[in-house]
Every structure is written in C-alpha cells, then in structure tokens.
C-alpha cells in the first residue's frame, strides 16, 4: 500500500513536469487510479525545468481529462475566489455572440436562454439600449432562499449553482428569481449522445436533466483552469469583464482592469438594486455609446409595447 502510494505521488510529479515543459495540460492520466493503468513497459525520459532527467512509463502520458467535480465537491467554491462580472452597456450592440457562445458551451437548446440580451428603455424619452442578462449569482439570492432541498446553493466563491441530481423540479426558485434567469427542462433534453453520457457535474451543468432547473453557472469548469467564460471571450466589443473580487481585477480577454476603479469611474450599478439581492454582476451605464441603438427584427415585430 505504502509503496503504491509512493508510486502514485511520483507519477504525479513526473507528469507535472511534462506540463511545465509544454505549457499545455498534460498530466499522468487519472493519477489517482494509476494502479489500474496497464504499463506499456516502455519508459521515456523527461527533462524537468531544473535540468533533471526523470523516467516515466509511456502509458501514463495521456492528456488530462477535465477534472470531474462531483455534486458534493461542487458545493465548495473555488478556494480564495469571489467571482464577479461587469457588463459595459455602452459597448453592446446586440451581436449576441455571447448568447451563441453560451449556447454552444452548455449544449443549450434554443429555448433555454441562460444569457439573454434584453432591449431596455429606462423611460419614454430615453434612448433604448441592449442589456445582456444572465444569472447574477446574487450574494443574497432569493432563489436559494426558497429551495426546499438544498438543490441550489451559494458557494464560497460567490457562484450560485444547481445540483440537477437533487432538484425536485418544484420551480419555486424560478418564481422567486426577479430576473427570470432560470430555465427548466420541461421535456427530455435534446443533446448529443456523448454529452448525455458525460458524468454529471453541477460545475458544467451537463448533462442537463429532465424536470430540473438550470441556469448560467459562471462556468466554474473554465475559471478553475484560469480561463474566462465563453460569453466573455466571444464578445468582439469587450462588453463583458470577468474576474475575482478578491483580486480587485476584472478582464475582458484583452485588457485587465481594476474592478474598484472601473466601477467608480464608470458609475457601475446593479440591476434592481432596491430588491436587496446583491447581484455579483455590475453594469456600466450606456453613456458615451460606441454604437447608436439599432432595433432588431425580433423585438420590432414581437410584443410591441411590452417594455417596462
């Protein structure tokens, strides 16, 4: 037992070296189950950064599968983080790339809009503007308050997630959310087979489950790897800034700025602040806009006069 433990540790170490060397994500495959891996018998030499040579069996050199976070593990947030988003309304021209990227990332069917781009108009005289809206991962989430089974929960890193293997489908959270951020799988979700066969994790929200609630998850599977959520990177106008409040920094993929300065200088606000939900998503008001407002076909024809 001791010996095999030792082996495991050394494999992790060696495999880690490969990662250092290439800068890509390589690690001994499933290091915790290394006992079960059939050794090829062939060893290869690897060079560590300090010029040390190590020997590793070839069989252990497989790309890292994305770490699977079980529903229980997903209840803990990512250590030391407090994720936050800032959306610059002055830059949004309803290209909906964020929406499409989100749909692709989470294999969403078109009626499941985790990220909506809303046409907003503050008053009759004001120029309308586009507002991307998703789950705000509120610090005082009304949805989490009402969940009878702890299926939706607030994590230490600020993210509100859903355990679709626990959700009973009462939809109270959907009613409680003032931002209508939550969606429901009314029927069996239509997803590719390989997604349906993935092990379920609340961090990926995949595979979706019939009769349960789902919503924007702030892509913790991405942020865990230090990558930005796809909605942020997909936006060509840099509308979305994402970051860690504990670092007081947000990035839109091309620039990283100080969160506090950005919010102070640009008069950042939160949607429906008076409800006391304390969203983790901030908006920068649509002043000095980069683009004039252009209505799109959809809002022009549908629901005339339904704006609030």
């Amino acid at each position: 037992m001791d010996k095999s433990d030792n082996n495991r540790r050394s494999f992790i170490k060696k495999a880690g070296l490969a990662g250092l060397l290439t800068g890509s994500t390589w690690v001994a495959s499933d290091a915790f189950q290394s006992n079960q891996i059939e050794k090829s018998g062939k060893t290869v030499q690897l060079l560590s950064q300090d010029g040390e040579l190590v020997e590793v069996d070839e069989a252990f050199l497989k790309p890292i599968p994305d770490i699977h976070i079980s529903p229980e593990e997903a209840r803990e947030g990512i250590e030391g983080r407090k994720f936050v988003m800032v959306i610059d309304l002055a830059q949004c021209k309803n290209l909906r790339k964020c929406h499409d990227a989100c749909e692709k990332m989470h294999y969403l069917s078109p009626e499941k809009e985790w990220l909506k781009v809303l046409k907003m108009q503050d008053n009759e005289l004001a120029e309308p503007y586009w507002q991307p809206t998703m789950c705000f991962h509120c610090d005082q989430p009304p949805c989490v308050k009402v969940c009878p089974v702890d299926a939706t929960f607030k994590r230490s890193d600020g993210i509100v997630l859903i355990d679709n293997e626990r959700c009973i489908g009462c939809r109270f959270c959907m009613v409680a959310c003032p931002y209508s951020a939550r969606t429901f799988d009314w029927s069996e979700p239509q997803i590719p087979l390989e997604i349906a066969e993935m092990p379920y994790s609340p961090e990926t929200s995949c595979p979706p489950k019939k009769g349960t609630v789902s919503k924007c998850d702030f892509c913790p599977d991405k942020t865990r790897k230090g990558e930005l959520p796809p909605c942020v990177t997909a936006c060509p106008n840099g509308v979305f800034y994402f970051g860690d409040e504990n670092e007081d920094a947000v990035s839109n993929g091309s620039v990283t700025v100080k969160l506090s300065t950005l919010l102070a200088d640009r008069a950042g606000y939160r949607y429906m602040e008076d409800l006391g939900t304390k969203p983790r998503v901030y908006y920068l008001p649509p002043v000095n806009r980069a683009f004039p407002f252009e209505d799109d076909e959809y809002t022009r024809t549908q629901n005339e006069g339904h704006d609030h």
Binding site: R166, I168, C170
Partner: peptide, 26 residues
C-alpha cells in the same frame, strides 16, 4: 403532480431545508 421530479420526492424529507416555505408547507 406539479413536480418535475416526483421520483425525488423523498429529497423533501432527507434534504429538508428549513428556510424554504415549501418545507414549512410540507
């Protein structure tokens, strides 16, 4: 009948969350 997952009704008991009005209702 209204539940999306009636098969998980037992969660209401084993994972009861006392902050929820649904738990009070149960």
């Amino acid at each position: 009948i209204d539940m999306g997952r009636p098969d998980r009704f037992y969660n209401v008991i084993i994972h009861a969350r006392i902050q929820s009005p649904i738990t009070w209702d149960v």
